[in-house]
Write a protein that binds this DNA or RNA. Structure first.
Length: 593
RNA sequence: CUGCCCGUAGCUCAACUGGAUAGAGCACCAGCCUUCUAAGCUGGGGGUUACAGGUUCGAUUCCUGUCGGGCAGGCCA
C-alpha cells in the first residue's frame, strides 16, 4: 500500500480490519480507487474481486462479507456493492471537511513525504560541454532536473545536483581554435578560418575579451586571459571559463543551481579511468582485437561488444563514463538519476554493462562483498533493492538498473506561426536565454514540464506570453492571485480561520475542490517516483479549474459570517496547494497579476 | 537490416500503472459581468484508443504480429 491519500489510507485501514475476519490469510493488495463515475461513490475497492479466485467464491458474496465486517466510521455515509463485486463508498461531507484544517496546519509541508528516508540521490543534468550557449534542449533538461530534485527532496531524499562536463576533449580544441582564429582577425568564411569551427557571434565576444586580458569567473572556475593570440592553452582555459560563466547566467535566469561541477578530465588525473580499465580486465570481460581493447557488453544484454581502448591508445567516451558512475556509487549515492536527450539512449546499456562487469572483478578475486547485510536492511525499509555503497571500497552490489535514466526528446520553437531555428547569438540554434527573454522564466519552466519527457514538444512563444486562459501557466497563477485578492479584500489574517466550522461547505464546487486537494500528496508522490513532473503540471491545471469554477459560482465575502469563514478556509487550503505545487516546478506564485 | 521509444477527439495531451459509460484544454457553436480580477465561468457537438490476434471476471494499459513516426546503431561525443 503506497497511497499517500489521507482518506484512501483511512478507508484501507477499515477494509483491512474487515478482511481479517473474511480472509485472514489471503494476501490482498489494497487498492482504493476513485471511480470516474460519481454514481459509484467517492471511492471503491476491488478487494472482493481479487479474493474471488484464491477463495473460489462469488465476488459479490465476498463483498457482502467484507461489508458486514466493516467497522462503523463517521467518514462513511454508506457503502454498497456494485457491478461484478466492487464495494463503493460514499463519504460524509465531514470526511472531506477534515482535510481543510489538515492542509492549513501543514502549510508548506503539505504534500511532503518521507519515502526517501534521508537516503542519498544524485541527479545529473544539463551537463553541457562549454562550447556555446545553452539551447532549448538544455532548458528542458534543466527544468526536468530541477523539478525532479525538488520532488525528491519533498519525498525526504537527500538530493545532490551535479553538472558533468568535459573541458579537454576534441570539442574544446575546436572551441579554442575558433576563438584563436577570431582573435587573429579571421571571420567565418574567410580563407584561413578553420574548417571545423564554431561560427556563432559569441566566439567573437570571447576573442575580444581575451585580447582585452579580461578575467572571467564562473561558479566553478576563474581565469585571466593572457591576451597572447599564440598562447593556445590560455585561449582554451579562458574560453572554457567564459562559456561556463555564460551558462551560469543562463541557469541563474532560469533559477537553477548546482551543488557541484564534475570534470571528465579529473577522472583521468585521479587515475579512476586507469583503475576502471584494470578492473574490467581483471574481471575477464575484455579481449584484444584489431589492436584495440574490447568490453564484452553483450554479456549484459548489449547487442554488440564495444571498444574501450582505441588502437591509438586513447579511450572511448564510455570508459570515463563508467569510471564516473563507479565514483557516484562510491560517494554513497545509492540512487543516481541521469537526465539526457534520447539521442544518448545507446549509452545506457554500455554504462550499466560496464558497472556490472567492474563488479565481477571483485567478486571473482574473492574481495569482501559486505554489501549484502546492509542491502537487506535497506530492502526492509521498503525501498527498491539497492545495495549499500561501501565508502571507498568495493562497488560490488551496484544494482543492474544503476543509474536511472530519464530521456527527453527535442524541443521545437514556434513564434508568429513559424518555426524558429536560428539564434543570432549562437548561430545555429535557439538558446535557452532567447526563450526566457521572449517569455519568462515561469512560462518556460511550466511549458517545458507540461509534457511527458519522451514526447516531442513544440514550444509556442506566442502562447507563453498570452495573458488569458489559453496560457496554462497564467491560468494557474491567476487562480492564486484571485485568492490573494479575496484575502486582501477581506482584510483578516488566515490564522483567524483556525478552527472555523466547515459545515457550510456543501456546494458541489466546494466538494469537488476538496476532493481535488485530497489528491495532491499522491500526485506529488507519483510524479517523483515516476520521474514525471508533467503529472503535477496537469494536476495544477485541474486544481485551478476547480477553483475558477467555484469562484464564479459562489461569492466568498458574503454577509453570513459562518459561510464566509468556511469558504475562506477552503480558499486558503487551495492557495497552499497551488503555492507548494508551483514551488516544486520552480514557478512563482504572484499575489497580483 | 537490428535495438529502444512513441501511436488516444480536427490539434496539444490525460486516464490514479489491469477497473465500471476513455477525460481535459485549444478550435467550433450557444449563453453568463450593477458582484471578491470576465486575465474568468456554464452548456453543446465531436472516439472502432493505428490495425489484427492473445492472456482474464475486465485491456488504452500486459504478450505476439503488422503498419506508421522518432532516435540510435563508427576505434565519434
Amino acid at each position: 500500500m503506497s497511497s499517500t491519500h489521507p482518506l484512501k489510507d483511512q478507508l484501507a485501514l477499515l477494509i483491512g480490519i474487515a478482511l481479517e475476519t473474511v480472509a485472514p490469510d489471503a494476501p490482498v493488495s489494497l487498492e482504493i480507487e476513485r471511480p470516474k463515475n460519481p454514481d459509484h461513490g467517492d471511492f471503491s475497492s476491488n478487494a472482493a474481486m481479487q479474493l474471488a479466485r484464491p477463495l473460489k467464491r462469488n465476488p459479490r458474496e465476498l463483498a457482502q462479507l467484507i461489508l458486514t465486517g466493516l467497522p462503523k466510521s463517521p467518514l462513511i455515509a454508506r457503502a454498497e456493492i456494485a457491478g461484478a463485486g466492487f464495494i463503493n463508498f460514499h463519504l460524509t461531507p465531514a470526511a472531506w471537511h477534515g482535510l481543510v484544517p489538515q492542509i492549513r496546519a501543514a502549510g508548506a509541508a503539505f504534500g511532503r513525504g518521507d519515502a526517501g528516508a534521508g537516503h542519498k540521490v544524485l541527479v545529473e543534468f544539463v551537463s553541457a560541454n562549454p562550447t556555446g550557449p545553452l539551447h532549448v534542449g538544455h532548458g528542458r533538461q534543466a527544468a526536468l532536473g530541477d523539478a525532479i530534485c525538488n520532488l525528491y527532496a519533498a519525498q525526504g531524499w537527500n538530493v545532490y545536483r551535479e553538472f558533468y562536463y568535459n573541458d579537454a576533449g576534441v570539442q574544446i580544441a575546436t572551441l579554442a581554435n575558433s576563438v584563436q582564429a577570431r582573435a587573429k582577425g579571421f571571420k567565418p568564411g574567410d580563407a584561413g578560418w578553420p574548417e571545423a569551427a564554431y561560427n556563432g557571434d559569441y566566439i567573437a565576444d570571447i576573442a575580444a575579451d581575451f585580447l582585452a586580458k579580461q578575467t572571467v569567473k564562473s561558479d566553478d572556475r576563474e581565469f585571466t586571459a593572457s591576451g597572447n593570440v599564440d598562447d593556445p592553452d590560455s585561449i582554451r582555459q579562458f574560453a572554457v571559463a567564459y562559456l561556463r560563466h555564460e551558462q551560469d547566467l543562463d541557469l541563474k535566469a532560469f533559477a537553477v543551481r548546482f551543488d557541484h561541477y564534475y570534470l571528465e578530465s579529473s577522472l583521468y588525473t585521479s587515475g579512476r579511468v586507469e583503475a576502471t580499465v584494470k578492473r574490467l580486465i581483471e574481471a575477464g570481460k575484455t579481449y584484444e582485437q584489431d589492436g584495440a581493447l574490447w568490453l564484452r557488453t553483450t554479456d549484459y544484454g548489449d547487442d554488440k561488444d564495444r571498444v574501450m581502448k582505441k588502437s591509438d591508445g586513447t579511450y572511448t567516451y564510455f570508459v570515463p563514463d563508467v569510471a564516473y558512475h563507479i565514483a557516484k556509487w562510491e560517494r554513497g549515492y545509492e540512487r543516481a538519476i541521469n537526465i539526457q536527450g534520447t539521442d544518448h539512449h545507446g549509452t545506457i546499456a554500455r554504462v550499466r554493462a560496464g558497472l556490472q562487469a567492474a563488479g565481477e572483478s571483485l567478486r571473482s578475486s574473492g574481495a569482501p562483498t559486505g554489501g549484502d547485510n546492509s542491502a537487506s536492511a535497506l530492502a526492509d525499509s521498503g525501498l527498491p533493492t539497492f545495495g549499500v555503497p561501501l565508502a571507498g571500497a568495493a562497488n560490488v552490489g551496484i544494482p543492474e538498473g544503476y543509474p536511472d535514466y530519464l530521456l527527453h526528446t527535442m524541443v521545437r520553437v514556434m513564434r508568429g506561426g513559424e518555426e524558429v531555428k536560428i539564434s543570432k547569438r549562437a548561430g545555429s540554434y535557439v538558446t535557452l536565454r532567447d526563450l526566457i527573454e521572449w517569455t519568462s522564466k515561469d512560462a518556460v519552466r511550466f511549458f517545458l514540464l507540461s509534457r511527458k519527457a519522451d514526447t516531442e514538444y513544440i514550444f509556442d512563444v506566442d502562447l507563453a506570453v498570452a495573458r488569458n486562459t489559453d496560457n496554462p501557466v497564467y491560468y494557474v497563477q491567476y487562480a492564486h492571485a484571485r485568492i490573494c485578492r479575496v484575502f486582501e479584500e477581506w482584510g483578516g489574517q488566515p490564522a483567524a480561520l483556525d478552527g472555523v466550522d466547515l459545515a457550510p461547505l456543501t456546494a458541489p464546487h466546494e466538494l469537488a475542490l476538496m476532493q481535488r486537494l485530497a489528491e495532491y500528496p499522491e500526485t506529488v508522490a507519483t510524479a517523483s517516483k515516476d520521474l514525471a513532473p508533467h503529472l503535477l503540471v496537469h494536476y495544477l491545471g485541474m486544481l485551478a479549474g476547480d477553483f475558477h469554477a467555484w469562484y464564479n459560482a459562489e461569492k466568498f465575502l458574503v454577509d453570513d459570517a459562518a459561510t464566509k469563514l468556511a469558504r475562506l478556509a477552503l480558499a486558503d487550503a487551495t492557495r497552499i496547494a497551488i503555492v507548494n505545487g508551483l514551488a516544486l516546478l520552480g514557478v512563482s506564485a504572484p499575489e497580483k497579476m
